[in-house]
Write a protein that binds this DNA or RNA. Structure first.
Length: 267
DNA sequence: ATGCCTAGAGTATCTAGA
């Protein structure tokens, strides 16, 4: 089972690129972020014609998340993170697909910092941590996939010097990502790549793609039942090199078949 | 310190992204 996450930066602008990617890589599940489309402006028919069932949470102009499932209909179980009924931004969607609980998230960018946008980022992150703890405690097979807008360490960026004041590298952002991992989640790309560099985002500015001056900010966190099924993880870099690309490339995990649960032996 | 590049809204030039 291949599960992917892709910040598309505008689903309608990027529709040809998304369809080309789905056709070539054939992920079983695809979490999309930054749809930048109102609910009624989402290209449902084109996605379904490509063989994918879909649930989505749109928003005019900004944000927006979707979960796609190949030859299946995702069963939505949650829309929006709990903890703040006044939060109107479309940044979290949760659905069940093929026995896996899929959380698709688009964590706030938080720039400029300090300021209200950074405060919102940290508050949103705290709500995610609280929700993730409940998911972890449930023991369910869960993947939390999306654009976290956090560069976890200096090994996850081509050169941190010019980014030191950026919200993505702040100690407050990194500490929260660390706290998430400390719950037990497996950071699947880091797990698969070890010491090797791996990026998922290249800024449009300053030929950052051509120089491979990237950041790792899109993450797939696996709960224990999925972590033991992790076979490989990767980034579909070719997508970033296509004409009119998103500034992100899709990241993915390949999971092996679910093993039958071992019977516990009483002592 | 700021712009760089791209997208959406709307039709000039903002906001927002990361």
């Amino acid at each position: 089972m291949k599960i992917a996450t892709f910040n598309v930066n505008g689903i309608n602008t990027r529709l040809p690129a998304v369809l080309a990617w789905l056709g070539r890589e054939r992920p079983d599940v695809a979490c999309l972020q930054e749809l930048k489309a109102a609910h009624e402006a989402f290209p449902r028919q084109a996605i379904e014609a490509a063989g994918y069932g879909v649930v989505w949470h749109g928003q005019k102009a900004w944000n927006g998340v979707a979960i796609l499932a190949r030859d299946a209909q995702p069963v939505e179980v949650r829309r929006g993170l709990p903890g703040d009924p006044g939060d109107a931004q479309s940044r979290y969607l949760e659905a069940e697909v093929g026995g896996v609980l899929v959380g698709c998230l688009y964590l706030p960018n938080g720039n400029p910092q300090p300021g209200p946008k950074f405060d919102y980022k940290l508050a949103w992150f705290d709500r995610l941590i609280a929700h993730a703890q409940r998911l972890w405690d449930s023991g369910a097979p869960v993947v939390l996939a999306g654009d976290y807008n956090v560069v976890p360490t200096d090994e996850d960026i081509y050169d941190p010097r010019s980014w030191r004041k950026d919200a993505l590298l702040q100690p407050e952002s990194r500490e929260r990502y660390r706290r998430l991992l400390d719950q037990g989640w497996t950071d699947s790309l880091r797990q698969a790549f070890g010491d090797r560099r791996v990026y998922t985002f290249w800024d449009y500015f300053r030929n950052r793609w051509e120089r491979d001056a990237g950041l790792r900010i899109d993450h797939l966190l696996l709960s224990a039942p999925l972590a033991q099924r992790l076979e490989t993880a990767g980034v579909d870099r070719w997508v970033r090199g296509e004409p009119r690309p998103s500034d992100h490339a899709p990241a993915w995990v390949q999971l092996g078949a679910a093993r039958r649960t071992r019977r516990r032996t009483a002592k």
